[in-house]
Design a protein around this nucleic acid. Structure first.
Lengths: 144, 144
DNA sequence: AAAAAAAGTATATTTTTATTTACTAATTTT
DNA sequence: AAAATTAGTAAATAAAAATATACTTTTTTT
């Protein structure tokens, strides 16, 4: 049983591949890594310190120092001292940073919507339910 | 309706994010781009010429010349002239290249299986069905 | 209180990626 | 048949990413 589920999951990854790589395109003026960091902060929905980002994205902390400095200079993120650990610095997205990510997601959204329109109403209903269920269960799996 | 579906789809992307980024880790001796190319060839399941790869991965063809050359020297891919277009060269994975990608997918597979085991039998059944349905419909959308 | 560890910074160096320009050979278009 | 495109290569350069080393400050461990 688990084997079959895993196979379906593996098949899903390439299906999502295109949308995923769209996230790294058309990033006005940001390098790949800068974009990754902004994207990661957006996904995590909370302020992170450099160590969190370093672990999450598998980037050396020495690299992050400069990446974050440049992102800050560009107005995409802000740094604030962590009151609970005075060694640490909390990085969070500015409205400008949020907006940039939003625009990219909007493009993915629109592309996807255009394709969904090709499905029949019944298929659309099925897809909505299947995606919903998938999301709930995947989330549950990760959390527990 | 479409709006709701798109939202579920957007929520799915971060859920798959982790597995996806695992594809770029632990790549013995290959650079990111080299790994991307190997991964892409694996996903497409057919020989591709440089232009195909260039378009698919958004990499300049000049870059690919060297990337492919190094991959070939490493024994991961082979080049063969395209008999239908003598300007073109078809690149395909060698058994060694295949094996390398397989190992990575196996790791993802095992990680995922471990997590699925936490779900109840009923939830597992639901997940299998939901993933299956999702895959079928996403594939249908893209093809049409 | 001293020692060890952790978060972040700084600097230098090497390796990868990206970009520009220019070229050959084969294919398509006119 | 000539002109324009296209696939791929080549080489030089610039920019970005990765790695190694060393340091300060704060926190945790002993």
């Amino acid at each position: 049983m688990i084997e079959e589920i895993a196979k379906e999951y593996m098949a899903l990854i390439p299906n999502v591949f295109d949308s995923f790589s769209d996230l790294n395109k058309g990033i006005a003026g940001l390098s790949h890594l800068q974009n990754h960091v902004v994207e990661y902060l957006y996904m995590q929905k909370r302020a992170l310190n450099l160590k969190d980002i370093s672990k999450g994205l598998n980037i050396a902390k020495q690299q992050l120092t400069n990446i974050i400095k440049d992102l800050e200079a560009g107005g995409y993120v802000t740094k604030a001292p962590d009151t609970k650990d005075r060694r640490a610095v909390l990085v969070s997205l500015t409205p400008k940073g949020m907006e940039m990510v939003n625009e990219k997601w909007t493009r993915i959204y629109q592309k996807f919507s255009g394709q969904v329109a090709k499905l029949s109403t019944e298929e659309q209903f099925d897809l909505k339910y299947a995606l919903h269920k998938t999301n709930i269960l995947l989330k549950k799996m990760c959390e527990e």
